[in-house]
Each structure stands twice: as C-alpha cells, then as structure tokens.
Write a protein that binds this DNA or RNA. Structure first.
Length: 630
DNA sequence: AGCACGCCGACT
DNA sequence: GTCGGCGTGCTC
C-alpha cells in the first residue's frame, strides 16, 4: 500500500509538507519519527506529523529515508509539544525539536512493549505548593517508595547540574533504582539512560530542565525542587517554563505536581492563595501552619548595616562586618563575602566632564578589570583603560563602585594574615562541591565571590556571610529585582548553620525586603504588583524586536502595535528595552497583558496579528511569561 | 531558516 | 549599463 507523510521542520514556519514514500521502505512511518526529505534545494531532517494512504493534493517529492529507526515520542509527549506550540507561540517543528532527546542514535530498532498505566493515584492530579522544611530528603524518599509500590516513577527536577550530584550520593543508599540526567553527560551515556527511563527500569529520575520531557512510561509524581529558580526558564525558543510544562504534562498523563520550596515564587504563592494550586501540609510538622520559613526556624543572626552611617574608609567593610570577620578568623572559622559584581570597579567616570566609558556594541558602562582592563559584561568587548578622558582629555578619570577584585584586595589589606580567595566567572571554575571541600580542608579563610558562591553546600560551611552592597541587586532594571533579592537572602539564611551571622550592607536599611518576612513580604510585594498591573495579576507576553538599525526596529515595532491596537488588545509600549542596545543590536518591545479573562482570545489574536517570521533586517521573538525583562 | 527573485541606488 | 543591498515569497 502506498503511503504519504506530512513533515514539520525546526523552522519558524507554521507549514507542514507532504511527501511520497517509495515502496522500497518496508517499515511503517511513526508519528514523531525523524525523516530526511528534500526541501527547496537542500535535504533536511524533519518530524513526521501525519501519515496517510490517500494521495494529498498538489505536487509531491519523495522521502529520501528514515533518519531514526523509531519515534522517541510517546503520544502524550507529542501532545505536550503541540501544547507548547500554542502556548509559547512557536511552530510544531520547533516544539518537537526542543522536546526531542538529543542526541539520539538512528541505527537502533527497539520494541517497547510496555505494561500500560493503571489509574491508581494517591493524590488528585493537581499542583501542590510545599514547604519541605528540614525533612526534605526523607519526604522525597517516602514519596518515591509510595509510588514504587504502585509501579509508578517519580520525576525530580532541580535547577542546576551541581544539585543532581547531591542527590546521586543520597539515592545510592536508598535502595531504589535511579537515573541522574542532564546535558553534560556524554552522548552514549545520555542515550543509555534515556533507554532505561523509556523502558521504565527506574523508580526515580533526577535531572535539570529538559528532564521534564523524560520518556518515563508511568509517572506517579513530578517534584520541582526550588521552584522559584530562574533556571527553570528556557532561554531559547520556545521559551518555556518548567512549572507550566510539568503542570500541563500532569494534566495529560494524570499525575500531580509538587512545587517544593521554602521560598516560593510570588507567582506560585499567589496561585496557592487563589486556590489554583493547593497548599500541601506536611503531617508530622505541625509546629508551623505557614508555608514559609520564618525567623524562628532560622538559626543565624541577621544584621543590617546602614552604609550611610559608616566612615568613608569603612564603606566596603563596615566596622560591624570587620568585627564579625575578625572574631570568626580568631576562632578558625571561614567567612564568605558576597559581591554582586565581578571586576574591580563598575565603571570609569570622568569627574571633569561627567562622561562614562561605554561599550560601543551595548552602550552600557564598561567594567574595569585589573588584568583585562575595560570589559563589557554583556558582549565581552574588551579594550585598554584610557589614561585621560576620551571625551575632554582631562586626567580625572575615576573608578566608581566595587567588584570582586577590589573587595578581594581590600580584604587582604584589612586581614593580612588571612588566606583570601576570589570566586567569580573570571577565575578558573571550581564546582560548588570542590569549593566546599577546600573550606573543609581549611585551605581558605575568606571567600570573596559572586552569585556562584550562594550554594547551600558552601554557605553551610562558613560562619559569617557578608553582603557588601545589596543595593546593586535591588536596582537592576527589572520589576522582579526585589523578589529575586528576597529569594537570595532566604537562600543564604536557610543554608546557614546554627550560630552563624549574616551581615547585609545597604544604603536603604528600611527597605521592605529587609524588614518584612514570609507572608508579610508576599502581601506587600503583591500589593505593589497589583497597583502597577504586573504579573502575577496579569499574564504577560513580551514581543521583542531586534535589528541593527534603530529606526527600522522602532518602525516594525510600531506597525505591529497598530495591528494589536485594532484588535483592542491591552499592551505596554512600544518602548525601548531596558538595555536599548545589546551586542550592536537595537531592541524594542511590546508587552501584551491579559488579566485572565481573554487568554484564549489573546493567543488567537497574536497568531493573526504577529507573523511568526519577521523578514528583513528586524528579528522578532515571543516570550510568554517572561522572567527577566532586559 | 535558507534561498531565489526582483527592485532601486552608486559604481567601473 | 551592472553590482549588490535588502524586502518578499516559497519551500511538499
């Protein structure tokens, strides 16, 4: 019997293409299987999305061959990809591409005759928000055992690779069959583990973002650990969020999703308040009815230092921070100094003419580094620091602000006997585990570094944590800056051991992020978001325009805005992005807003008003539920 | 996304 | 006159 296939490509086009199959091919094509076909003048790999025995209309070319021996997509994963297409505004080919388990060998033929899922869930297929408290690992284990009993698997998602390692060690001892999965595994190993998952030979899978597409045949529960993490958002098209994808998959495959965090995202917190998510009470932990970890559970002491009141020479290390570090060092305890910026100084400013030295590609100020000198943190542009001001030739070029290098030198000056070490993107990268080993072996006294030191494994090893200037984090141009600072402070405080100190230096000691805890903070932040029409009160869809000519970008953006206006949609802009220029590209955006009443309508209107492909010199990107607006 | 085709400005 | 930028349309 003759057969015909319809193929979707990883291209920004809605279209599918029909091909004829020569009778030489004995195997039946499967939905989701990759095939090689001619497209235009080239051969391309695409996904089978339809199989038919009836001849379709129009001219046809012949399929060249199968690329794989079978399709890696179950029908539910294929369905999930279709949903991604609708929700995140990409083509089906693009969605399938991102769900596809790369790399995938094409020479093997495997028959998956599987036992089919039995409906026997202990919980309804809902989303639960859980504060795990101290017993996290034990809770996870009990859930895994519960599901193992009914022949179901548990999927555990963690924000980054280093956290999978922590599980790996513990799971060994549990006596359950597990698979660790992330993108840094060698290709052969990835495929071996993919097969183990597909065959259902495991009880639990622990992995990073893409594991939400694990081929497990019979998922009983998906856990998203540290659900507030920004690492759960995919940066490439389709820019999906793991929380949303896991929830959708739970709906399709009938399993509950547990969002696990002691510091949940404002989004999830709000949804739990509204009853969209359920709050899950941990029975044996009745001491707290709250779903947030509050002060009484935090063993460390917390101090806020008002930098305004410090003597000028103590602006980097306040007298209190110096005192606490000295005390710790005398008792042989290590300390950690958190600096939100790498480099020596944040920018160079001429105090004669007021000009700042900027990146020619990004127009943001260049950081001053000791070895590389002027460096752009966005695009990597590098040049020598000028001796005189390039604008007025004056000699009063001053270094403003301080980064890790400056703080490292200052620490060496104040504590000459201590062994000071710097950890940031500019020094050779050590894994969090190796850093904590160095602390354990007493090889370092003062650790100076950026965000990459803020790991439970490291924080729990030190006696004092000093935050040099919190204001740098609070003032990044993003409406979620306060929330992210809140999570950071929580993370430090949750990770610290008993009897340790957290000292935060700031020019704004009365700011609410420092003075409101738990529910109080959430309701304050929600009030602000509601007044301004920000998420989670409005669902946002950001449409980003990029190109080399500023006016063309602006014009295209305005043209689309007119289309949206005609459809009576509510949106912000068009406006230049917070960083107008990055890597030489000018950027404008429109932010569509949905108050929850017209979600379906909005999605359809976007399809009509916005061409998926923006041709010419302006590129277009769609970001549904954007997380960082830059 | 590629690639071709076709339209206008500035070159030997 | 034609080389080449880029805007537009098509690929089964």
């Amino acid at each position: 019997m003759k057969s015909y296939i319809q193929v979707a490509f990883n291209l920004p086009t809605e279209k599918f293409f029909w091909y004829r199959l020569s009778s030489d091919f004995k195997e039946k094509p499967e939905i989701g299987q990759r095939v090689v076909v001619p497209l235009g003048k080239k051969e391309k790999v695409g996904f089978v999305v339809n199989v038919s025995s009836k001849k379709p209309e129009g001219k046809l070319k012949e399929m060249i061959g199968f690329f794989d021996r079978f399709s890696p997509f179950s029908s539910s994963l294929f369905q999930l990809a279709s949903w991604i297409t609708d929700y995140y505004g990409c083509s089906l080919g693009q969605a399938l591409h991102s769900v596809f388990p790369h790399p995938f060998p094409y020479e093997e033929k495997i028959d998956f005759s599987l036992s089919h899922p039995q409906e026997n869930s202990t919980l309804k297929k809902e989303v639960y928000l859980i504060n795990p408290g101290e017993q996290k690992i034990e809770l996870f284990l009990s859930w895994i055992r519960e599901n193992k009993k009914i022949n179901k698997q548990v999927l555990i998602l963690v924000p980054e690779i280093s956290l999978t390692c922590a599980f790996e060690e513990k799971i060994e001892k549990w006596g359950v069959k597990s698979v660790i999965f992330h993108s840094k595994l060698p290709p052969r190993e990835r495929y071996r583990r993919w097969l183990a998952m597909k065959k259902g030979e495991v009880d639990v899978v622990v992995g990073t973002r893409s594991v939400v597409f694990s081929p497990l045949p019979n998922i009983g529960l998906t856990l998203i650990d540290e659900e507030q993490s920004i690492d759960y958002k995919q940066k490439e098209t389709p820019k999906y969020g793991v929380r949303e994808v896991a929830t959708k998959r739970g709906e399709i495959e009938n399993f509950p999703v547990y969002l696990v965090s002691g510091s949940p995202s404002l989004d999830s917190w709000y949804k739990a308040q509204k009853g969209v998510y359920r709050l899950f009470n941990i029975p044996e932990k009745e001491k707290t009815s709250s779903h947030l970890t509050t002060d009484m559970h935090r063993p460390s002491s917390f101090f806020i230092v008002d930098v305004k009141k410090e003597k000028k020479k103590n602006r980097i290390f306040s007298s209190l921070l110096q005192e606490k570090i000295k005390e710790a060092l005398e008792r042989g305890f290590p300390v950690l100094v958190f600096v939100p910026r790498r480099g020596y100084a944040n920018f160079l400013l001429c105090s004669d003419c007021g000009e700042v030295i900027r990146c020619p590609n990004c127009n943001i100020s260049l950081s001053f580094h000791l070895k590389k000198e002027m460096l752009c943190h966005w695009c990597g542009f590098q040049k020598e620091a000028p001796l005189t001001c390039p604008f007025c030739e004056g000699i009063s070029v001053r270094k403003i602000g301080w980064g890790t290098q400056r703080v490292e030198l200052e620490a060496k000056k104040i504590f000459p006997a201590a062994r000071v070490e710097r950890f940031d993107l500019d020094v050779f990268k050590l894994s969090p585990h190796l850093i904590s080993q160095r602390i354990k072996n007493k090889e370092v006294d003062i650790l100076v570094g950026t965000q990459l030191l803020i790991k439970e494994e490291i924080i729990s090893m030190v006696n004092v944590v000093g935050v040099i200037l919190l204001d740098v984090l609070l003032n990044v141009p993003d409406f979620r800056a306060t929330e992210r600072t809140f999570h950071l402070l929580n993370k430090i405080r949750h990770s610290q051991k008993k009897g340790s100190f957290l000292i935060v230096q700031t020019y704004n000691p009365t700011y609410y992020v420092l003075n409101k805890e738990g529910e109080e903070f959430y309701s304050e932040e929600l009030k602000i978001r509601e007044t301004l029409g920000y998420p989670p009160f409005q669902r946002w869809i950001r449409i980003l325009f990029e190109g080399r000519t500023k006016n063309k970008v602006k014009d295209k953006c305005e043209k689309i805005a007119e289309e949206l206006e005609k459809k009576n949609l509510d949106f912000l802009g068009p406006s230049p992005c917070p960083f107008l220029q990055i890597k030489g590209q000018y950027r404008y955006h429109i932010i569509l807003r949905d108050d929850g009443t017209k979600t379906k309508f909005l999605e359809e209107s976007i399809k009509k008003a916005i061409p998926r492909t923006m041709r010419g010199s302006v590129k277009l990107g769609i970001d549904v539920d954007p997380l960082i607006i830059t």
